[in-house]
Design a protein around this nucleic acid. Structure first.
Lengths: 260, 260
DNA sequence: AAATAGATTTCGTCC
DNA sequence: GGACGAAGTCTATTT
């Protein structure tokens, strides 16, 4: 086993005994560090669903905000996790009758729990290869371009992109079926409902637009024509057919990128 | 700087120079290890959208399957990432005119790219606190209970949970609007469309069921009555109202848990 | 490669 | 705290 303690916020223990790993993990949780553990473990989860995962090498992260992530060597998503706000503790299975110390062979457990919903994640390490604790200093936040919000601004600045003469009146207009992205009227004064999507749309988006158009037709009574326009970069074949069946329309508009 | 090389598949470098970090990272990528880097970095992404992230301490993971994850001290989701299948490389910004070596102050970059869609993620380290490489041995896969698939099996085994006399006929029956979860008939011989959800449902699920019912009514022509039943643990108020407006129904069924 | 829908989705926003 | 919808969603399945 080797211990590193540096003055720059990194503490690492390599090939610790389970008791040494326990101490290092407890210290990291105590200090509010970002904790990572690599070792052979099994994982059990019970809460919104239930899962079990047999023994294998995994990389486990516990963040100071209460997040826990268990990653295998494959996949972008963790194989098991716990969301922010959970409480973490490390524990050793109780030893024999007389001993107060934990059995040296007993697994080391990282337990994460929360209430509402009641959930528990247990990572049981049979061996630990590395424990690291990091003091994180991060004040910056992400700046992102190309979201649906960016597309909305683009359409509000240049309504003609939807169709010549389109006039946006309100965003997020409420209906019995939910809030409409953009509510406006066309060159002839007809009511227009616009549903925005930042990428190619499928049947679900058509369903959404349908719900809003139907709801507005009821709200505004029978006399007024309500047009529904799906605004997105492109549509799938089935979605295009569904739009046609329902008398709805599509207008191709790209979300702004980088500079625009 | 301290280097650890153990016989059990863990290599760790603490407080390396950028050149030392570069070598450690390149070796890990070469060997197909799970690579982790903790350090101060900026992140730029360009692809399906664009994003920038200013300097801060982050934990970066590169998996042998091509996944890259950049985590801050907060949140379950990575602040930036690259999906499985991407290609990674480490590089140093080119030095001055005459030198062949990289400028010692030039940032160390982890670059991840893929095509279709064209995406690039660049993590620029101004300092590195730790580089670790792990040889992962994991043969086990996750076993999970409580999914929609489990709910489907429960309903197929006990159709009366939906309503007395319900008879499932086909699963995944195709319609013009997509595949129906369970297609069957009720005690009176009416066509029944069942949409399953493992948790409390909102307006989107009602929209889905509506699409399938509408599509089937057209497919089967006008004479037959098509009932639509949303099967889930519970419904939101608005969803319940939308169901009523459309003449659709709700039946409360929980997905099986643990033992069941 | 594209399409479709589920997910212990997570995340933000608004009520 | 619940409800609702976006997301660089990811992931599995099917065409």
């Amino acid at each position: 086993m080797t211990t590193e303690r540096t003055g720059t916020g990194v503490r690492t223990v390599v090939e610790p005994t389970l008791s040494e790993a326990e101490a290092a993990m407890a210290g990291a949780l105590e200090r509010g560090d970002l904790l990572t553990v690599f070792g052979r473990c099994s994982v059990d989860y019970e809460g919104r669903a239930s899962s079990t995962l047999g023994p294998g090498d995994r990389h486990v992260t516990a963040k100071p905000d209460g997040t826990v992530l268990v990653h295998t060597d494959e996949g972008q998503q963790p194989v098991n996790w716990q969301p922010p706000g959970c409480s973490q503790r490390v524990e050793r299975v109780e030893g024999g009758d007389e001993g107060t110390d934990a059995d040296d062979d007993a697994p080391l457990r990282l337990v994460s729990t929360r209430e509402s919903p009641d959930e528990e994640l247990v990572v049981s390490f049979e061996s630990v290869r590395q424990v690291s604790a990091f003091a994180v200093d991060d004040g910056e936040s992400l700046s992102l371009t190309g979201s649906e919000e960016d597309l909305r601004q683009r359409v509000l600045e240049s309504p003609d992109l939807v169709e010549p003469g389109f006039q946006p009146l309100v965003t997020e207009r409420r209906t019995a079926a939910g809030a409409v992205d953009i509510f406006g009227e066309d060159a002839d004064g007809n009511v227009v409902v616009v549903e925005l999507k930042r990428k190619r749309v499928g049947p679900d988006a058509v369903g959404q637009l349908t719900r809003y158009v139907d709801a507005l037709e009821r709200d505004l009574h029978a006399d007024a024509t309500v047009r529904g326009i799906l605004v997105a970069p492109s549509v799938t074949d089935r979605a295009r057919r569904m739009l046609a069946d329902r008398g709805l329309e599509f207008s191709a508009v790209e979300p702004p990128s980088e500079g625009e």
